[in-house]
């Protein structure tokens, strides 16, 4: 874990500065989104404190990815049927009203499926994260390249810098996508299933990186599929079902049988990990 030590020893000024003013982190209210008449998100309220890892949980199709896309400003929220519309605030600023490029310097989104067929090197892929920080006509500066190298260092992928992205394994590619997001130097990072398709070591690696970021004051909101991982690694969780928030709060309060069982249609048992004191979940079919 030498990378972790290195990453922690480094300072990341923009993230720190943003974190100091951002005691409240991310706070979204009344987020709705519908596609061809079908309501995918129905008035969702989410908060994600700064300096913590917040997990976004829910069964398939519960609206996790859509929520992240709306929060990231990629999709505009639908108009509320009645009453005031969606509001997404981060560090006191209205995120959806920010100019695009400023928003891109504030938040980064790590998508679930982002691939390319182009022969780009890892370093060039990470340098894309610097685009919001420089003029669109300018090339990357020495400062940009240094920031990209730092981001690669932080995810333990410095040795991949000259490889082509298309030749990487799933775990390596996930690290590169995280590094690209880190190169944006965001104070808020949204991740859609960052552990998907990864083996267990790579999953733990990804979550360790999120923890390092949170310790630096970054607000982390990650959609996760695996409740067990969420129980071990998240500080807070938000549970979505059918486009609504069913429960939100500390993992010990949300990951309990009477909340999970109706949502997932399973029977849950919660044990307590003898060393960490965190919940350990086991599942059986319902009925």
């Amino acid at each position: 874990m030498t990378t972790e030590a290195r990453a922690e020893a480094r300072t990341d000024a923009p993230a720190r500065v943003a974190a100091e003013g951002a005691t409240d982190g991310l706070s979204a209210a009344r987020v709705s989104w519908s596609a061809s008449g079908r309501l995918i998100l129905d008035g969702v309220d989410v908060t994600a404190p700064a300096g913590a890892v917040t997990g976004l949980l829910g069964p398939n199709g519960s609206g996790k990815s859509t929520l992240l896309r709306v929060l990231a400003g990629v999709q505009a929220p639908s108009e509320g049927g009645s009453g005031p519309g969606a509001r997404v605030a981060f560090a006191g600023a209205d995120l959806l009203a920010l100019p695009r490029r400023r928003r891109a310097r504030t938040l980064a989104l790590v998508e679930q499926e982002a691939s390319t067929d182009l022969p780009v090197t890892v370093l060039d892929a990470v340098l894309l994260g610097r685009i919001p920080h420089r003029s669109l006509l300018a090339g990357d500066s020495a400062g940009d390249r240094a920031a990209a190298r730092r981001a690669l260092d932080a995810v333990g992928a410095a040795h991949l810098a000259d490889r082509e992205v298309t030749t990487l394994s799933g775990g390596e590619r996930q690290r590169v996508h995280m590094a690209r997001a880190l190169a944006q130097e965001p104070a808020l990072i949204l991740l859609d299933e960052p552990t998907n398709h990864l083996d267990i070591a790579a999953q733990l690696d990804a979550l360790r990186i999120l923890r390092v970021l949170a310790d630096r004051g970054v607000t982390v909101l990650a959609a996760l599929h695996d409740l067990q991982l969420a129980a071990q690694h998240c500080d807070h969780v938000v549970l979505l079902s059918g486009g609504r928030v069913v429960a939100a709060g500390d993992v010990r309060d949300v990951l309990v049988p009477h909340v999970l069982d109706p949502v997932y249609g399973v029977r849950t048992e919660v044990l307590i990990h003898p060393r960490t004191g965190r919940p350990v979940l086991t599942f059986e079919p319902a009925g």
């Binding site: 990231a72 400003g73 695009r100 891109a104 980064a108 989104l109 982002a114 894309l128």
Partner: peptide, 8 residues
Amino acid sequence: TAAATLGV
């Protein structure tokens, strides 16, 4: 999506 999150 990646382009949009980079401010394009």
